[in-house]
Every structure is written in structure tokens, then in C-alpha cells.
Design a protein around this nucleic acid. Structure first.
Lengths: 191, 191
DNA sequence: GTCTATAGGAGGATAGAC
DNA sequence: GTCTATCCTCCTATAGAC
């Protein structure tokens, strides 16, 4: 019961974070969407920052589950492409929580949350292996530092190009994903 | 005198927007940094949103000045590269104001600000010409919609990869610019 | 653990004197 | 146009009954 209630809370937080971001999301809103009183929320989570942290842990678990599901025999480059595709699909579906990279109180909470840090490290390690493997076999540019590539992949989860193209209304979600996937891996220059 | 005072205000706003973003910036801070009382600020600008809009107009003027300064004989592709380089250098120097893409009150104010809209359209038109020229001569991928390319270039002004790499401390600003320039135009895949 | 009610404080905006 | 002082709204968080 308690676990189910907390899952419902995190689910609501996840969608609100995806829709309006951390600053615009209010705790009153969360409570209203869950259907309980605000004071009850604070019995489950000690602060707004902890709500966001819990949502990020949930998102990281989803990501890990997706990584696990990728077929072993897939090439490293294709694995990375699939991850980026999945990330952008999540974002377009309103399932990808987005946090401000500046808010200091939030950063402090995240750094203190073991589940978050562990999840982040595990995902990064897995992606790092694939990046290095892809570079070793020459499918990803070996001149780029692996860390820069990792950040570039992560950045697709908060790329404003997706929402701008979506607002334009000229392209389907699938087309948007294909476009940004192309600019990410193939670049803007003609090949 | 009045103009000079307002320039000083906008200058402060510009740096605060670059440093902490619209939500985290407070009007008290702006007033304190300018060295005047908050009430005086409101004699010059009617709202916090208008402060941000004025800073964006200033940034757009800077951008236009840079576009004007690019040598006529430069190839379209090289012009675009120079613009992206300049944009990222501004960002790393703390000169590029960043606004949330969600805040509705801010969006409404921006849409009502003629100077902002005109500047945005002029910059976009100029870049659009170069994009199409580059595609016509085959240096930029002709299969990508011009609007997607435009957004991709704009997005370099709010790319979190720059600050992440800067926080890592492993690269100089020049190296960071070169790296992201490479991932933007050449892509992650080996050529 | 859930509620109602409220404390406490931050921050945008204004009143009114000078 | 600048100031001091204040208003007022919104939001995070808590008190205390059940």
C-alpha cells in the first residue's frame, strides 16, 4: 500500500517535471494530481528536492532496464543509436523529467542520494564501454574524448530542438527523432 | 543619462541571466548590482519579464553586428561555423543570456516585444540564406529541413555540454569550442 | 498517514515622500 | 527618478487533531 502510494506520487512528479520543469512545478500541484493533501506528501518525502530526486531515480531505472534489453550482438554504434532514440522518444512522450542544471539546492540533494548516484554511474559506465568499443572499431570518431561523447548523448534528453520542431507541427514524432538522430551522429555537413 | 542608466541595467541583467537563468535571478539582485533601489528599476522597466526581454534584444543586436562583420567572400558553410563558434564563445564567457523555454509569462512578453521579434527574424533570415546556400552547393546535408538546421545552430547557445566539459576542468575553452563544433558539423560517427 | 489550517519567508510590485 | 517602507501573492514546510 505504502509502496503503491509512493509510486503514484513519483509518477505524478515525473510527468510534472517533464511538462514544466522543477521550478514551475509546485508541491500543491503534485498533491492535487495524486489526490491527497500536501501535508500527506511530506510524510512520504521530506522536501520538494527529494521528490525530484525520486523521480530521477525512477527515470534512471527505466533507462537501465532499456540498456539491459538491447541485444548482445548489436554493434556498439547501433547500441548507442538505440539509446539516443529511446531517450528522445521518452522526451517527446512527456516521460523524461528535466531538471535545471543550475539549482544548487537540488544539486546538493542529488549528490546525497545514493540511489541516484549509483544509477547514474552504472548507466554512464555501460555507455562508456560502448563508446570506447565503437571508437576502437572506428565507427565513432576516435579523436573525440569519450566524456564529450557521453555528454553529447545525455544532452539529447534535454535538447530544445525536439520541442521546437514539435511546436512547428510540420513533422511527426518519428520524423523528429530521425532528424535529430541524423544531426547527432552524422552531423550537419554532407557526407 | 537615462540611456546610460538603462544600458547599465541591461548589462547587469544580461550577466545574471547568463549566470543563473531567469527564474533564479531576482529583481533585488539586479537592483543591488546596478547600485540603485528596486523601485527605481521599475521606473525604467515595468516588469521582470521586460528586463529579460531587453537583455535579449541587446544580445540579438550583438549577434547581428557579428553577422555583419563576416567577410562577404567566406563560404556559406564557413559562415555558419563562425556563427556557431562565436555563439559558444559568448556562452563560455558568460555573455549569453539563457531563458527557460517553458515560462509562459516570459514567452508572452517576448512575443509582444517588437524589437525582439524583429531582431530574431532578421537573424533567422540571414542564417536561413546561408543554410540554403550551403545546401545548394552540397556542403550541408540537403536532406535536412532548413528549419531543423537553424534550430540546431540556435541550440548551441544553450548546450549543457559546454558547461559540463568546463566543470570537468580537463579542457580549455578553445578546446571545448573545437570539440562541440566538431560534433555539431561532423557528427559523432567517424568520417 | 490523512486531513485542515497556518506558519514562515521569498520575491515581484507599489505608495508616497523628496 | 530616486529613495524607504510596505503590500501582497505564492509557495515550501509544519502543527496538531483524528
Amino acid at each position: 500500500m505504502l509502496q503503491a502510494r509512493e509510486d503514484a506520487i513519483i509518477h505524478v512528479v515525473n510527468h510534472l517535471l517533464a511538462e514544466k520543469g522543477f521550478d514551475a512545478m509546485t508541491v500543491d500541484e503534485v498533491a492535487a494530481n495524486v489526490g491527497i493533501a500536501k501535508a500527506s506528501l511530506y510524510k512520504h518525502f521530506p522536501s520538494k528536492e527529494d521528490l525530484a530526486a525520486a523521480a530521477m531515480v525512477r527515470a534512471l531505472r527505466h533507462a537501465q532496464a532499456f540498456l539491459e534489453g538491447i541485444a548482445e550482438e548489436t554493434t556498439p554504434l547501433e547500441k548507442l543509436r538505440q539509446v539516443v532514440r529511446w531517450t528522445m522518444e521518452q522526451k517527446l512522450a512527456g516521460e523524461m523529467p528535466s531538471l535545471p542544471s543550475q539549482n544548487s539546492g537540488l544539486r546538493a540533494t542529488l549528490l546525497r542520494t545514493q540511489d541516484y548516484m549509483n544509477g547514474l554511474i552504472e548507466v554512464s559506465d555501460r555507455l562508456g564501454e560502448w563508446i570506447e568499443a565503437a571508437q576502437a572499431q572506428g565507427s565513432i570518431n576516435p579523436q573525440l574524448p569519450a566524456i564529450a561523447i557521453l555528454y553529447t548523448l545525455y544532452a539529447r534528453a534535454c535538447d530544445p530542438v525536439l520541442e521546437f520542431l514539435k511546436m512547428g507541427g510540420q513533422h511527426t514524432d518519428a520524423q523528429i527523432v530521425a532528424l535529430v538522430l541524423s544531426t547527432c551522429f552524422d552531423g550537419l555537413k554532407a557526407r
